[in-house]
Amino acid sequence: GTLHLNGVTVKVPSLEKAIKAAKKFAKKYNLEVQVHGNTVHVH
């Protein structure tokens, strides 16, 4: 999967790991997580 954090793109081995990391990051910075196919966006 691919993880987008505020314009930074990170390749992640699995989508589940990407979503987990995204949710952790989003919670910390009070951001929103959106999943588009195998790409996770945090903004």
Rank of each mutant, 00 (worst) to 15 (best):
P13K: 15
F25G: 02
A21S: 05
L15G: 00
L3D: 03
A18E: 00
K20F: 03
T9K: 10
K11S: 11
A21K: 08
G37P: 02
K23Q: 11
A26E: 04
E16L: 09
I19P: 00
T9I: 15
V40M: 03
K28V: 06
V10S: 04
K11Q: 11
L5Q: 02
V33K: 00
Y29C: 10
L3C: 10
A22R: 00
N6W: 15
H41G: 04
V33G: 00
A22S: 01
V8F: 12
A22N: 00
A26L: 07
H43F: 14
P13W: 06
V33R: 00
H43T: 13
Q34W: 14
E32K: 07
V42K: 02
F25Y: 11
H36I: 15
H41C: 15
L3G: 02
K11D: 07
H4P: 02
P13L: 08
V42G: 01
A18C: 13
F25E: 02
H41T: 14
V42N: 02
N38S: 10
H4L: 11
H41F: 14
N30F: 11
K28A: 06
K27E: 14
T39W: 11
K20H: 06
A21R: 08
H41Y: 14
E16T: 11
K17H: 10
A26M: 09
K27N: 06
T2S: 11
V12Q: 03
P13Q: 13
A21M: 13
T2R: 12
A26N: 01
P13A: 14
V10W: 09
L15R: 02
A22I: 15
V12I: 08
V40F: 01
K27G: 04
V40C: 03
H36K: 11
H43Y: 13
L3K: 03
K27L: 05
K27D: 13
E16R: 12
N6S: 07
V33F: 09
H4M: 09
V40L: 06
H36Y: 08
H41A: 13
T39K: 07
L31A: 05
K27A: 09
L31S: 01
A22E: 00
G37H: 06
V33H: 00
V40P: 01
K28F: 08
H41S: 15
E32Y: 08
E32V: 13
K27S: 08
P13E: 11
K28E: 09
V10M: 10
L31W: 08
G37V: 08
H36M: 13
E32R: 03
N30R: 05
K17R: 12
L3T: 03
H36N: 12
V10Q: 03
A21H: 08
V35W: 07
K28Y: 09
V10H: 06
K28W: 12
K23N: 08
V12S: 03
K17T: 08
L15S: 01
H4K: 05
I19Y: 04
T2M: 13
G7R: 03
V8L: 13
G37A: 03
V8W: 12
L15H: 01
H36V: 14
A21Q: 07
E16S: 12
L15N: 00
K11C: 14
Q34H: 15
P13M: 08
L31T: 02
Q34D: 08
V10F: 12
G1W: 14
F25N: 03
P13C: 15
L15M: 08
N6I: 12
T9D: 07
V12M: 15
H36G: 02
V12R: 03
L31F: 07
H43Q: 09
T39S: 12
H41D: 07
A18S: 02
V35H: 02
H43M: 12
G7K: 05
K24D: 11
N38I: 11
A22L: 15
A21D: 06
N6Y: 11
N38D: 07
I19N: 00
A18D: 00
L3P: 03
T2C: 15
P13H: 11
V42F: 13
T39C: 14
Q34I: 15
V33Y: 05
V35T: 03
G1C: 15
G37E: 06
A26I: 07
A18V: 07
H43K: 10
E16A: 14
V10C: 15
K20Q: 13
L31R: 00
V40G: 01
V35E: 00
K17E: 12
V40W: 01
A22F: 11
V8N: 06
H4I: 15
V12F: 15
T9M: 12
S14P: 02
K23P: 01
T39L: 09
K11H: 14
P13I: 13
A18Y: 07
F25K: 04
V35K: 02
